[in-house]
Simulated assay, not measured.
Amino acid sequence: MKNIYIFVVAPFLFFSCKNEEVNAPTFELKQQIEAITLLGDTLRSPSLEDNQAYKNYQNAKIAFENAPKNADSIIWFGRRTAYLGYFKDAIDIYSYGNELYPEDARFLRHRGHRYISIRQYDKAISDFEKAVQLIKGKKDMIEPDGLPNARNLPLSTLHGNIYYHLGLAYYLKGDMTNALKAYSNRTVTEKYPDNLVSGGYWQYMIQRRLGNDEKAKEVIENIDPEMDIIENMSYHTMCLFFKNELDDLKIETIGTSSSDVLSYGLGNWYLFEQQDSLKAQALYGRLLREGNPYSFAYLAAESDWNRLFAEND
């Protein structure tokens, strides 16, 4: 669990405001049903706690109220709202920002992410595809972290995150062709080993699902144990396992501590490498019982379960 919270303000970016007459609405947190999972479970907004995340939210809210038409203030207000688990409220904030700044791809990027959180994948894809059009021909930019890693080093970019989340949304829809296309585009923005292992993890599984076993091996060919990984350790571990450099017992033992990435990756391995659907189902089931219902691996397991195992449930 990360326990370092730093409020980072992104460099001010200049975008034209479409409608100077737009009135800034009042945004207050509302406890509500955030999502109905594909398996029929109800996810609600959590109770608020007086912790650092809530204090960061309060600071972002004050900054927004002091500058309600500043693009960066809106972005951070939405991000801090989403970090509390209030995804629909965050979507409303991003929608307000998108109305003011329709040429700023950041609002579609973040809103699309939260559409993924609440299982509205078609809306997410629509936002990301529009964002792809907006960033064409534009210089990429580092995206500041809301929850900085131990080195306080942002590892991702706006363009990279748009393609990464677009690929994930297509993956969750079961559209592996478009998922691969998005992740392949993302490779041009990969700068750190962390990006290589997170992208490699998803591309490997996409290629296996498409029946491209040799291409799957090529995706992770250059991933090795000595890579300097800052935060994506589980992705790194799973890629090494896919390369037969770790055994499944070790992965399973790690997975019992509710590491969603490992549990989902191992489930995939049993499903496509070992043709053992019962073992895969057991791993998916454990993940769906014990994992974080908003993690990407959980969402993927949920989608798989709905397609592959629901009839036998």
Rank of each mutant, 00 (worst) to 15 (best):
N3S: 09
N3D: 09
I4C: 04
Y5D: 02
F12V: 04
S16V: 01
S16I: 07
E20P: 01
E20A: 01
E21M: 07
V22T: 12
N23L: 12
P25R: 15
P25A: 04
P25S: 04
T26V: 07
Q31S: 12
Q32K: 15
I33M: 14
I33H: 03
A35N: 09
I36C: 05
T37K: 10
T37L: 10
T37E: 09
T42V: 08
S47E: 10
S47T: 07
E49Y: 05
E49S: 06
N51F: 03
A60L: 02
A60D: 02
E65C: 03
N66V: 02
A71L: 12
S73T: 03
I74T: 02
T81I: 03
Y83K: 10
G85V: 01
D89N: 12
Y94F: 10
S95R: 04
Y101G: 06
Y101M: 11
D104R: 05
D104F: 14
A105G: 03
R106A: 02
L108W: 05
G112T: 00
R114D: 15
R114G: 05
Y115T: 08
I116A: 11
S117E: 14
R119M: 05
Y121H: 09
D122E: 15
D127M: 12
F128W: 00
V132G: 04
I135M: 00
K139M: 15
K139I: 11
I142L: 14
P144F: 13
L153E: 15
L155T: 09
S156V: 10
L158K: 09
I162Q: 05
I162M: 11
A169S: 15
Y171A: 06
L172E: 11
L172Y: 11
G174D: 08
G174I: 05
D175W: 00
M176C: 01
N178H: 08
K181L: 05
N185A: 09
R186S: 01
V188L: 13
N195A: 06
G200P: 14
W202P: 06
M205G: 01
M205L: 07
R208F: 05
R208W: 07
R209P: 02
D213V: 13
A216N: 12
N222F: 10
N222L: 05
P225S: 12
P225I: 07
E226S: 13
E226I: 00
M233H: 15
Y235H: 13
M238R: 13
M238C: 10
M238T: 07
C239W: 11
F241L: 08
F242Q: 08
F242A: 08
K243V: 09
E245K: 14
I254P: 01
G255M: 10
S257N: 11
S259D: 15
S259K: 14
L262N: 14
N268F: 00
Y270E: 04
Y270A: 03
L271P: 04
E273S: 11
Q275W: 05
D276H: 10
L278M: 09
K279L: 07
A282Q: 12
G285D: 11
L288S: 06
G291E: 14
A297P: 00
A300P: 09
D304R: 06
N306K: 13
F309G: 05
F309K: 03
E311Q: 07
